[in-house]
Design a protein around this nucleic acid. Structure first.
Lengths: 166, 166
DNA sequence: ACCAGTGAGTTGATGCGTCAACTTCAGCTC
DNA sequence: GAGCTGAAGTTGACGCATCAACTCACTGGT
């Protein structure tokens, strides 16, 4: 009988440390990006995601369901978000069903302006905190590994466009 | 006059794609770990952080401020969290100031058991989703880069022990 | 015409995270 | 000891995220 190597009961210290260091880096980075967006542009990263997604699409309007799909968010999350953003004047329903239900949602002028400036700002921050700290080799490694991980967790194909925000 | 290279106005497509892919990987990984901890152990990753931190410390009790420092959380976040966890029976004040204020906070038996099983489970998940998808080289790259990034954002030294959770 | 079923969108409840304001308490000076 | 100051801890308000339950409209079958 061939002895099967037992799975280690817990993480080895250096494994744990790797995980912990990496986790810490994530947390700091996201926190920083979020804070800056909030302080300088007055929007959260969730709002940013919505603004960008609408910004990118031709008529700057979509159906709620498309938006949810594109962001890979739950419908209800989108709905709550839109309610808040509507009261802030960033988006407006382009068409409504009889019962007040949002059938189409679009950027307002204010939303468009906010999107534009936030994209610039956020881009600079990504460069500063993320890209600038990467060598070409590191970047390649990270890309490969990210793709591996995505496949490992969610082995579906080409869907969910991505909005660049957690 | 030497022309200074203008900073690119926005991210180049491949830069954006790198960022987006990486972001997506993060999001999926964290979501997965969180969901599993929630489904299998009945605790959130925030609760997990607190349990682990208390678990690791000698008497399994600390002051609220120490806990906050160790987790790198705001005091108020810790306080809210402890209130919830206290009602769930995971932690209990070990000593209180006159006005009912928590002076020391410690794990209950239930909290200890939860910590133990969650640590095993979480460790396996980290291995499965994170470590197993890494070659030694990738791991080295990620470690270095994480450290660079941490230094880039928070150029302080040796504080904040880390709890392995966002 | 009717009704079951399905998909789209909403709502409410609850937990998480942050900010600002507040209460206590300890140590300090006078 | 009276009063000041700063640190420790709490509270309330608000936005974000998820889950489950609901409404509404459309579709297809009989």
């Amino acid at each position: 009988m061939i002895p099967v190597m037992a799975e280690p009961r817990t993480l080895k210290p250096e494994e744990w440390e790797l995980w912990d260091t990496w986790m810490r880096a994530q947390r700091l980075l996201l926190r920083e990006l979020d804070r800056d967006l909030q302080d300088e542009c007055g929007i959260s990263k969730a709002e940013f995601s919505v603004l960008v997604t609408l910004w990118q699409v031709p008529g700057r309007e979509m159906r709620v369901g498309e938006l949810a799909e594109s962001l890979d968010w739950e419908k209800s999350r989108v709905s709550h978000m839109l309610t808040r953003m509507e009261t802030r004047g960033f988006v407006a329903p382009t068409r409504c069903g009889p019962s007040g239900r949002r059938t189409g949602i679009g950027l307002t002028d204010k939303g468009g302006r906010a999107a534009q400036s936030a994209i610039l700002r956020h881009g600079r921050n990504i460069r500063r905190y993320f890209l600038d700290s990467l060598t070409a080799e590191q970047a390649a490694t990270i890309r490969v590994w990210s793709e591996q991980m995505i496949d490992g967790i969610e082995p579906r194909f080409g869907e969910g466009s991505g909005n660049g925000v957690a």
